[in-house]
Amino acid sequence: MIWQFDLILLTLVVICAVAAITVKDLLSSAIVLGAYSFLMCLIWTGMGAVDVAFTEATVGAGVSTVFFVAAIYHTTRRTKD
């Protein structure tokens, strides 16, 4: 894999992971977690684990984001802590 591309992806993954747990708005947190899943999918594709990447793209970035949003609709959008 091209190391510059790898470095950019890993930096973005770390930024997304930190942002997903520090953001106060739960809806943005869910969306950032979906972006994190999609970047992990790209990294796994680069490493050759296409099957894992496919599962990550469908479950992590696709369905679980929808589940999070559906759950957040029944609670408050702002986190207290």
Binding site: V50, D51, F54, T55, T58, G62, V63, V66
Partner: peptide, 29 residues
């Protein structure tokens, strides 16, 4: 397609099932 070509290419029952469920979830949304 993902289900039936799961032997030869990435994919299989689980990924195909998630896609099939997601298509219905899209309709509900």
């Amino acid at each position: 397609y993902v289900l039936f070509l799961g032997h030869y290419s990435p994919g299989g029952g689980f990924q195909g099932g998630v896609l099939m469920g997601a298509s219905f979830i899209l309709l509900v949304i």
